[in-house]
Design a binder for these strands. Structure first.
Lengths: 356, 356
DNA sequence: AGAAACGAGTAAAACGATTTTTCGCAGTTG
DNA sequence: CAACTGCGAAAAATCGTTTTACTCGTTTCT
């Protein structure tokens, strides 16, 4: 084939039409499966399509309708397993319905979130799955509302008066964590979190505290909440321990907090679970490979993605009615990082002797 | 504003034109910054744009030109830090040049890879960043070639005769790992990997073995390579150890292998680095938080993304010349999981006594 | 003065599809 | 035989832009 002119223009519907000796409209009808076309002509159209390798240009095809067969997805980040799985799921579900998913990362910035949303509005996407940086009351949701966009809010949300929401049932999961920890005898527990994710953090904190205090009113629940970034949290946690505070268990409300707690333990020579117990919201693959394995709350990614898309497409297809707020149950995996207090011996690392 | 009819049609260029009392062509010129427009008219156009909240429909705008201001990105998966960071970077770089990134996950399937590519071709994307599942010789690259698409290959590739490639310098990094391990006295090292990622796995393995044997010809390098999935690897590794093999160090050629190795150590009660040393290709955030911290080869994500986009846009803008093959240097972080052999005491777990 | 150049703008043709409208024609009916 | 019915297909309108080609004055050059 030598050095073909590869930068050729692709065959359009008119090329197919003229080769088949019919009009473009007829080609369109054949492709849409309309039956009022003579079999003879239909065959010639099929042949022409085959020969030219013709494929519909989806964007041109969408041109005529107001909405395009595109779903926008905005995630706070792509670097974590959770959002990675979420995007994968959403992509798959969108595809199943003949839509294309266009995902963007707001990089934990509300300003960027709105910019992306504006771009997607320009693209005239059919709908948006928004995982807001903070909560459902941010500028992004307001933008969607103001511009009459259809969308679903997920993850760091509870409920909204304009959009359907789907998120993990943080409160119940946290309550279960509380039951487990109290049941194991813990009475001084530290909860660490990041304040910016207001919606979920509050639900998780309240769910935990309420249940803990209900089961054992003498329980002391300390809270270390950093405002925005992870480094301040690390500093605050360091201060907290430096003051001599010595909880028997730590419950981290989100993944990064679990890492911070873990590295802080490590710095002080504390081992789980002998010196201190640890449970984290959000599971990750590595948590099963470490020693000890880290207990975690597993979010139902598939369910969240599934119901989000279901709700979204219902709205796209004109579904009416008040917005729904769905909470999907989590799974709490109590692994080796959680034990009973009592072996604690104030900062002296103990010998390990786990055996598979 | 009561219950406005929010499902309004957005203002088009013609709406702006008629409100400003000019033609659509003039509006287009004003927006493009053409100077041959009377200031008076230009002002009226700007006012109309302002009042109507008009924004160009990027897809309609792209309609007229053959290529669209869209870059496609195909990654084997979204769940890992590496590809998450990669997508984030690529998105950012595309945006900087006024393009939109559309990312898709091939979910480690070559068949799906080609399907996605076909869809992107239908979309008439300006270019594609492809991180192939296996290597540069797969069906996806062939498809791109056959259809005259412009693109760049990254990550699991070495070089290609049609496309620019950018990847981590696996061989050099592996050589450095070999130097480190040999230097620490290791003479029996197990390398674990996944065979499907042929291109890079071979480079990493050869780079390691060559240097190791060169520095210490008596070194024994065992290799456990699974074909496709992670579970067979786990089984093979289990068999290997069950045979009584007792290397003093393990070098994992990819992240999942590191997790498998780690959990296998855990199952057998072996501790790093006293019982066995571990180095993994690919870094992850958690590796610094665990005890011990896991030594890892850090891939230069930013550099790879940066040069990939640079090369891609050069081609998009018509750049000629033979394809380039870039190798970006990695950083090898020797953490606590690597020590000197000699403390090994055949399977009996030893007491830990790390202190921050 | 007449040609050429230029300035400022418009109408119309693309781009690649889909959808609505119109049209020709064959067959049927009164 | 005129009028009606349907079928199949073509022609035209539409989506929102950009670009080309063209008009109509006015100015400048020879």
């Amino acid at each position: 084939m030598a050095h073909r002119q590869d930068q050729q223009r692709r065959a359009s519907i008119h090329d197919v039409a003229s080769r088949a000796g019919v009009s473009a409209a007829t080609v369109s009808k054949v492709m849409a499966g309309v039956t009022t076309v003579k079999p003879d002509n239909a065959q010639r159209v099929f042949d022409a399509i085959e020969q030219l390798g013709y494929r519909v240009d989806p964007l041109a095809s969408d041109m005529r309708r107001a909405k395009r067969r595109i779903i926008g997805a905005i995630m706070p980040e792509f670097e974590s397993e959770f959002f990675g799985q979420m995007v994968t799921q959403l992509e798959s579900l969108a595809e199943q319905r003949g839509y294309t998913l266009v995902a963007a990362s707001s990089r934990e910035s509300e300003a960027r979130e709105t910019e992306i949303l504006a771009r997607m509005h320009d693209w005239r996407v059919a709908g948006v799955v928004l995982a807001p940086v903070r909560n459902e009351h941010g500028p992004a949701a307001a933008f969607m509302k103001a511009n009459g966009m259809t969308g679903v809010l997920i993850d760091r949300v509870l409920s909204d008066d304009a959009f359907d929401t789907v998120s993990a049932d943080s409160a119940s999961a946290s309550a279960e964590v509380a039951r487990e920890l109290i049941g194991k005898g813990h009475r001084h527990i530290l909860v660490v979190g990041l304040g910016e994710q207001a919606a979920t953090v509050r639900a998780r904190l309240d769910g935990f505290r309420t249940t803990a205090l209900q089961l054992a009113p003498d329980t002391r629940v300390d809270v270390v909440l950093a405002e925005t970034d992870v480094d301040p949290l690390r500093a605050q946690l360091r201060d907290y321990f430096a003051k001599g505070e010595r909880p028997t268990a730590v419950y981290s409300l989100f993944l990064k907090g679990t890492l911070v707690a873990l590295s802080e333990f490590r710095r002080r020579g504390w081992h789980c679970p002998n010196d201190i117990s640890l449970v984290g919201f959000d599971d990750a693959e590595w948590m099963q490979a470490t020693w000890p394995a880290i207990a975690a709350v597993v979010q139902p990614v598939r369910q969240i993605a599934g119901h989000a898309m279901e709700a979204l497409f219902a709205r796209i297809e004109g579904g009416e009615g008040p917005p729904t707020a769905r909470l999907e149950p989590c799974q709490v995996l109590m692994r080796e990082s959680v034990g009973s207090p009592g072996f604690a011996d104030n900062g002296v690392a103990t010998a390990h002797d786990h055996r598979g």
